[in-house]
Amino acid sequence: MPNPRAVAAWSLAGLVLAAGWSNPLTRLLVALSGLAFVGLRHRRGVRLRGVLFFLAAAWAGTALLNVLLSHLGNDVFLTLPGWLPLAGGTLTLEALAYGLVAGLGLVATVLTVLPLSVCLEPQDLLVALPGPLHRTGAALSASLNLVPGIARGYLAIQEAQRMRGWRPGLRSLPEVMIPALLTAMEDSIQLAEAMEARGYGGGPRTSYASQPWTWRDSGVALGALAAVGLVLAQPPPTWLAYPALTPPALNLAGLAACLLLLLPVFLWRSPASAA
């Protein structure tokens, strides 16, 4: 298992690179290494299709929005009639390119944070919180144990009410939602009771779980640190879309930094959750 704190270091470095400069090439490379990380090293049972679809939609949406709203730039590829609100006017290649790069920034930042949730067990992430946060972390972690049961209960209630003559619809929604909500709240109060009955609340706590830090974790964390150091020392070349497009360029430091972000794929095995 990768150590959550090492993953967090990697994510932070990725964020700095992806959001710090509007260089299309660093953003692209960061997005690709994020994609490789989550694609090859996600935990079992995670489905990525939804997230990836969302990212594609957000990327396209940002680009489209900028084309329609920002009418500046020299290379006009279409002129919309002026009576159209907001969008009416010239549509330019510059606006399209800028929108694509802005959207790529969004995609890249998302992909750098994504490993925290898809490559680690959520509860392990809570355990990795620093000591003073343990009390709340324990409560949140406990509540995560309820989530699958509540989701299953909702489906079971829907089935059973259907057999009692319930039919889906807006007015009959309460017949499923109310029992589901109330049962979930009751279960959670029971969980609170169980925690209290085992001495939870007030006073200092210690932690049983230990998350070992291996040389692989050190490798990833040092790589992340080095990547940030490199780009801060030699920032990637600036890229301008307006008033005229400039070709994107990348310096050696930027390239090296992005390559360092690929380290997790080489150093960490796929975290297999115990069956």
């Binding site: 009390r135 709340t136 409560a139 949140l140 406990a142 509540s143 995560l144 309820l146 989530v147 699958p148 509540i150 989701a151 909702y154 489906l155 909500l181 979930a184 709240m185 279960d187 959670s188 109060i189 969980l191 609170a192 925690m195 209290e196 939870y200 609340g201 007030g202």
Partner: peptide, 21 residues
């Protein structure tokens, strides 16, 4: 109070489950 803290965590869990379903 522990009860409120647990309720807090629980409401969060219910919301997460709602989002799953």
């Amino acid at each position: 109070d522990t009860r409120l803290l647990a309720l807090l965590a629980a409401l969060a869990a219910v919301d997460a489950a709602l989002r799953l379903v």
